[in-house]
Design a protein around this nucleic acid. Structure first.
Length: 775
DNA sequence: GAGCACTGC
């Protein structure tokens, strides 16, 4: 070993000699603020000393003027007082569960403490901290970059879909969405580039976080050098501690930090409220009349309910003001839900209206919101919360393969979260519009994790790609219903993403690389065979963004007329293509969107998605092709759609506009759900015998939405396995298919090669498969 | 003759 190597601290080998103190005397040594730090054996006083120094330990640059100021506010966070305790527990354990209530500073501070102890930059590794939402990943990364006195995107960065704000080789602390880390795992199943992984907001139990927990538990057994921190709210801690116990007789250690919030007094109703919207409005007005100044947050379930309630509250409040201007102040009522344009969402941060007269009673602000204000958005200054106890929740019924939204009672955890929104700036009050007994006895402890409420075809494909073959015995925090897994496997097998033995096929491997539902990924991959991949790329992008059609309440007729002008009568999918093309032809013009009642936000999003999908297609050499003959093109597009959506086909029965979804009409007893109608927004000018649909929605009755005409012969040609008649219940649908089979037999069975990948035999794609990079 | 809770890749 050479004399010039630092003997006492091999972890400084990454530094240039001048900073290692090599050969330049001991003065230089003391200039390195991290000198003497042994990874994962770092003590609190070492860290505090390094933080208090004049030189940034990570950049070796002098600190900026604001650094010390920010550091002083950081030191007041509850988590800061427990730094020594944290560093000790971090040194001694591979997996830690941490609970920190609102205001503890865990999201910003813990990853920094980890960076100081882990010294990831000395090993060419990174510390990752996941967030369920993009805005959180971005804004926390920005804050932490400021706190660490580095430029965002250099030593501290973030990674979210469409934006990688990191620098290879430099970034050692990375905030990212949970979905992004899951994507990375698909090409790096041991997540080798990370030394510590922190899953934040684990109690929210997003699908991605749940899968990551399962993966990390497995990786931790193989990679003893990987440390894992699960950060959550109190209620769930024990569950995670048990799940992550490394020995059967012990749970994972818990690190606990108090929050910094104000007390919230909770009130219940004496009797159950029969009409929660009416009761909510009444309660808001009661607060306005009788309670001290302070803003109100009311939770309702959806856009229509919220707009309606806002109108009524405004009317009644204006009445009160007119009747008694000396004792009641003015009131502003602000709706909040996600489909609202960002500019209007900003209104929730406006100040309450000023008093009408100089010494009159002060004004008050009421925000009427969906669940978005429960987790994603925090509004300061809220003192009163009105909680009717409901929210819209996704439910999945594997038997009929339908995801839908249902207004359901919230959980206790959710009710507590809502109440907490009243105590952010000073002591507050929460009015629950249900009885205490119902709270205790009827509400579930936790909201069911997303994995139990979702269609898992996407997730199953991802897990398969991750090399997890036995999905049933995968170590889930909460295992999904076997029937849900079965449905997913069935779909993936029909799409030829899995072979009959349940192994992922080369095609399935490529499908998994697309950030899309398997059906969409499939049709995109086969689209070059139909010479319309350019168009399918657009249609796929349009189908994976929110609805582009706007229909304001007071301008429905104008909106419908604008839509009619853009409609292609052959099918809604072609209409989507047309809308996007017109948007591009009109140079993404905002005014063009506006006059045509289209959501520019959604179209812009489609544009982003399209570009991302195109990059993925290029990675796999999937050509972008178009046909110049429009008539032929339109036929081919609908044929390619069949290759992905053959399981979402409906057949017309009788002349009343009723359709029967294929295969759901078991035997002689069609289930209620299988009789559907074309959604009124459907642009078809006829009622074709066969249609494919993108969406099944259950509202006033079952509807199918985004519909295109197809031909029976395409079904049996491009999805022969699925339309094997021996698997069909008797009925008109089966007889119609039988006629198509007979006709084909009469023609002589000339099997098309198009869409042949349905049987999973195509090896050509396998050769093209590359594993480099990610998108 | 209709309605998108909220995220994420």
């Amino acid at each position: 070993m050479s004399e010039s190597k630092p003997r006492d601290n091999p972890y400084l080998a990454h530094l240039p000699p001048s900073q290692r103190g090599v050969g330049t005397g001991s003065k230089e040594i003391t200039k390195d603020p991290l000198f003497g730090f042994l990874p994962r054996k770092v003590k609190g006083d070492q860290v505090r000393k390094a933080m208090d120094g004049d030189v940034n330990p990570f950049t070796k640059q002098p600190h900026s003027g604001q650094y010390k100021k920010i550091l002083e506010t950081r030191k007041k966070l509850p988590v800061f007082a427990q730094m020594d305790e944290f560093l000790k527990i971090f040194s001694e354990n591979q997996i830690i569960v941490m609970v920190g209530e609102t205001g503890s500073g865990k999201t910003t501070q813990i990853p920094q403490f980890v960076a100081y102890s882990d010294l990831p930059h000395t090993k060419g590794k990174m510390v990752a901290c996941t967030q369920p939402r993009r805005v959180a990943a971005m804004s926390v990364a920005k804050r932490v970059a400021d706190e660490m006195d580095v430029q965002l995107g250099r030593h501290v960065g973030y990674s979210i879909r469409f934006e990688d704000m990191t620098e290879a080789g430099t970034t050692f602390l990375k905030y990212m969405t949970d979905g992004m880390l899951l994507r990375e795992a698909m090409n790096d199943p041991s997540l080798e580039r990370y030394s510590t992984i922190i899953l934040d907001e684990a109690h929210e139990r997003t699908l991605a976080t749940d899968i990551l927990m399962g993966l990390l538990k497995g990786i931790a057994k193989k990679r003893k050098d990987l440390k894992i921190i699960i950060m959550s709210a109190t209620l769930d801690a024990l569950k995670f501690q048990k799940y992550f116990s490394l020995r059967s007789d012990a749970t994972a250690p818990l690190f606990k930090v108090p929050g910094r919030t104000h007390p919230v007094e909770v009130f219940y109703t004496q009797e159950p409220e029969p009409d929660y919207v009416e009761a909510a409005i009444r309660t808001v007005l009661m607060i306005h009349r009788a309670e001290d100044p302070g803003d109100i947050l009311l939770f309702l379930t959806g856009e229509e309910e919220i707009e309606d309630a806002c109108r009524k509250i405004k009317l009644e409040a204006d009445d009160l003001l007119n009747q008694d201007p000396s004792s009641v102040g003015p009131l502003s009522c602000i709706p909040l839900y996600s489909s609202l344009p960002p500019q209007q969402q900003q209104r929730i941060f406006d100040a309450a209206p000023p008093p009408i007269t100089k010494d009159g009673p002060p004004g008050r602000k009421v925000v009427v919101s969906t669940n978005i204000a429960e987790t994603s958005l925090t509004i300061d200054g809220i003192v009163y919360v009105v909680d009717p106890g409901f929210s819209k929740q996704k439910v999945y019924n594997p038997r009929i393969r339908v995801e839908s939204l249902l207004v359901s009672p919230i959980s206790k955890a959710s009710a507590q979260q809502r109440a907490g929104r009243a105590g952010r700036t000073r002591p507050g009050k929460c009015f629950r519009l249900y009885t205490e007994k119902d709270f205790m006895k009827e509400l579930e402890e936790q909201t069911h994790p997303e994995i139990l409420r979702s269609n898992l075809s996407n997730t199953v494909l991802e897990l398969m790609k991750l090399g997890i073959k036995d999905l049933v015995s995968f170590d889930y925090v909460d295992a999904p219903a076997p029937e849900t897994l079965m449905r997913a496997l069935e779909l993936l097998n029909y799409l030829a993403a899995l072979d009959d033995d349940g192994n992922i096929t080369p095609l399935g491997g490529i499908m998994a690389e697309f950030p899309l539902d398997p059906q969409l990924a499939k049709l995109l991959i086969v689209s070059p065979e139909f010479k319309c991949s350019n168009e399918l790329l657009t249609i796929t992008a349009m189908m994976s963004v929110p609805n582009v059609w706007l229909r304001p309440n007071n301008q429905r007729r104008e909106a419908d007329a604008a839509k009619a002008a853009l409609t292609v009568p052959d099918g809604d999918h072609l209409t989507l293509l047309n809308v996007y093309n017109q948007y591009v032809l009109n140079k993404h013009d905002k005014n063009w969107c506006w006059t045509n009642y289209l959501s520019q936000r959604a179209l812009q999003q489609a544009d982003n998605v399209r570009a991302q999908l195109q990059r993925t297609m290029e990675r796999f050499d999937i050509d972008l092709i178009s046909l110049s003959d429009e008539k032929k093109l339109f036929v081919n597009i609908r044929q390619a759609l069949v290759c992905g959506f053959f399981m979402q086909v409906a057949h017309k029965e009788g002349e009343k506009g009723n359709y029967l979804t294929v295969k759901d009409n078991q035997a002689s007893q069609p289930s209620l759900i299988s009789v559907v109608a074309l959604h009124p927004s459907c642009g078809l000018d006829t009622q074709p015998e066969w249609v494919i649909f993108n969406e099944f929605v259950l509202t006033t009755r079952p509807y199918i939405r985004t519909v295109s005409e197809v031909k029976a012969e395409w079904l049996i040609e491009f999805a022969a396995n699925y339309f094997d008649l021996s698997t069909f219940p008797d009925g008109e649908t089966k007889r119609a298919l039988q006629r198509a089979w007979n006709k084909r037999a009469g023609r002589g069975d000339k099997k098309s090669s198009k869409g042949s990948r349905q049987d999973g035999s195509d090896e050509r794609l396998a050769k093209k498969r590359r594993t480099d990079g990610r998108d």
